[in-house]
Amino acid sequence: MAFKGQIIIDTERCKGCGVCVPVCPMKCIALSKNVNGKGYNYTETVNDSCIGCASCAMVCPDGVISVYKKKI
């Protein structure tokens, strides 16, 4: 059974710490080249390989990532 995942990042609350980047097994998130209102390079998704494992959300200190998934 496979899952397709989607994450929603509250980019304005993101502090760009990057803790979520290395823990993603699908390598689908990275820090943006753009900055948010506070001047942080926020996290963004870079491809649609997300499986909804929520590893990123687990380690996010600021709880800015919401994770959704559905069976495919």
């Binding site: 995942g5 989607q6 929603i8 909804g52 929520a54 959300a57 687990m58 709880g63 800015v64 990532i65 919401s66 994770v67 959704y68 998934k69 559905k70």
Partner: peptide
């Protein structure tokens, strides 16, 4: 709004800020 959209598309919520 995006969260509601995903739920409508058949996604289930795995994690969100408490």
């Amino acid at each position: 709004a995006r969260k509601q959209e995903l739920l409508k598309e058949g996604y289930e919520e795995v994690y969100t800020r408490t």
